[in-house]
Structure formats: structure tokens, C-alpha cells
Design a protein around this nucleic acid. Structure first.
Lengths: 155, 155
DNA sequence: TATTGTTATACTCTATAACTATA
DNA sequence: TATAGTTATAGAGTATAACAATA
């Protein structure tokens, strides 16, 4: 039996027109970064490592004994903000600031054994995380292209 | 005349090894987003528009009268955070919350004439900004690829 | 009970200015 | 004078929990 009055359906649940915003690098970069950071924090919550902290540990491991400001500059982090990061890592006994031999102003940054150990754990966690990232992006070629494009945005 | 003692140069100003961090999507995305946001704020400082605010105005213009939570959801912004954004825009007389006809819980969001006017200005500023972005990325094809890859990171 | 808007709070990352100690 | 590290503060964005009014 047919319905008596087949009223026109005005689609009350209509999807919004997002065309302007969907084409905006500004908007997409902000969203992608936000979601990405959240996933990272979730994935590394067991290790209590934030994205910036993981980058710091990685770079120190590859460049032990360098000055605090050298590490900061290589990561694109300002000296003032880097101090707080290092305080946090040092309070967890992951890094240490040794006195530099020829310049009493500067600190030579090193990982502690605890820091080396946590970094080893973190690198295993990162392998999973970057694999998920790789899958989302669509393979190594897409990932490399993505990294290239991100670098072009710098400077 | 040759130098007498050609001492081995230990390169005191040696560049750091950034290979681990340079390959990390985590790191590059964080850096690119940060620099990009700063450039946006500088470019739009005359209009006092932040990235999120510009996206909000754009989306409202294309979807006037929609519910506050619909706009927020389409932008991937949580309701709670969106309230603060709307308060700020409304205090500047750029948007208004009208009472929705069929649901006294919800607000129908509109741009004011001032909002339309500012958005027109902002769109001109955005044209410059996205052109600079296009140049950095290396053309429209690279830009479109970048947007595609950013979208793949979502969800 | 579920949804809409709201408030409050905390967290990640960033920028800037000003200070101390050392070079 | 310049550099290394530091402190303090502000800003942009995010997440979560809880609440009142309405459906």
C-alpha cells in the first residue's frame, strides 16, 4: 500500500559544502597535524614520550656531546623552549648536561643508559607508527614524496 | 709559498647528523605545520585572522544558517572548542547566532555584513598566501598531491 | 535518554623579551 | 659586544569531563 502523501524530502541531514576549505593547504595541514599528533601521543603513551621529545632523544643519540643550542637549532626549536624540554628529560634521568671542556657557558648533551634504553623501546614503537603512516599515505614512494613536499614548505 | 704545517682540520663547526629525524614524518610534519602557521599569522595580521578563524568564516559563508555543531564537525573542531571561536568572532561582529526555527537548543550561524566584508578581504589575502605556498611546493600538481597525501593521513 | 551549547581545565608546541654568566 | 643558557609570559590549537536546556 502506498503512502498517501509523498512529501518532498528536503534532506534535513544534508552534508555541508566543504569545497572551499577542502582545497586549503592551511586547513588540511592544521587538521592532519592535529590528528597525527594525537595518534602519536596515543601510540607512545606507554613510554610517556611526546613527538618533540622523541625527536630530541633521536638527535642526541646520533650527536652525543654537542651543545644544547646546536641540538635545538638542528631541530628547529628555539633555545628558550628547548631548555624546558631538556629539564623534563633530565628530571626523568634520560639525558644529562655535562660541562663542556672549552666553554663554561655551554653544556655537552648526552643520553644516560636509561635514555639509551628508552630510545631503543621508542624506536620499536616508531617502526609500528611509521608503518601505519606508510599504509595511510600509500607506500614508500608516497611517503618520500610527502616528506619532500613538507621540506619544501620550510624556510 | 706553501703553508708549513698543514694541520688536519677537525671541522669544529661540523654540521649535525640529522638523518634519523629528517626521515621522520612525525618531525617534519610538526616543523612544517609550525612554520606554516607562523607565516599565515604574519600574512593575515592586518586582518587579525587566525588559521582556524579563516576556515570558520569560509565554511559559514558557503553554508549559512547551519547549526553550530554542524559547522564545527565539518571542520573537525570539537563543540567545546568551537564555542570559544564563535564567541570571539561574534564579539567582533563578524558572525551571529540566530535562533533556529525548529529546535530551541541549536543556533543557526550566519555571517554579518562586516563578516562578509572581512571574508572578501581575507580571500584576497589567501590568494597571495596560497600562491606563495604553490611556489614553495612546486606547482599545482605538487600542491594537489600534497593535499591528497594530507587527506590520507586523516581518519 | 540523547543532543546542543556551554564552561572549565589541561596539554603540546610556538614566539618573544629580558636576564645571568661567560667568551 | 656577542653567545649559551635560562626564566617568564603569551598565544594557537587540541582533548576531556561535566553541566543546563531542550528534544
Amino acid at each position: 500500500m502506498e503512502k498517501i502523501s509523498e512529501t518532498y524530502e528536503p534532506a534535513p541531514d544534508d552534508a555541508l559544502d566543504t569545497s572551499a576549505v577542502a582545497q586549503s593547504v592551511t586547513h588540511q595541514l592544521r587538521r592532519a597535524h592535529g590528528q597525527f599528533t594525537n595518534r602519536f601521543l596515543l601510540h607512545f603513551s606507554r613510554l610517556s614520550l611526546r613527538p618533540a621529545e622523541f625527536s630530541v632523544l633521536s638527535l642526541i643519540a646520533q650527536n652525543p656531546g654537542r651543545k644544547q643550542s646546536e641540538i635545538a637549532a638542528a631541530l628547529g626549536i628555539q633555545r628558550a623552549n628547548f631548555v624546558v624540554l631538556m629539564n623534563e628529560l633530565e628530571s626523568r634521568c634520560l639525558t644529562e648536561r655535562r660541562s663542556a671542556p672549552n666553554d663554561r657557558r655551554s653544556h655537552a648533551i648526552h643520553l644516560t643508559p636509561d635514555g639509551e634504553s628508552l630510545l631503543a623501546d621508542a624506536r620499536r614503537a616508531e617502526a609500528d607508527f611509521e608503518a601505519d603512516c606508510l599504509e595511510r599515505l600509500g607506500g614508500t614512494r608516497a611517503r618520500d614524496q610527502f616528506l619532500t613536499l613538507l621540506r619544501r614548505l620550510l624556510g
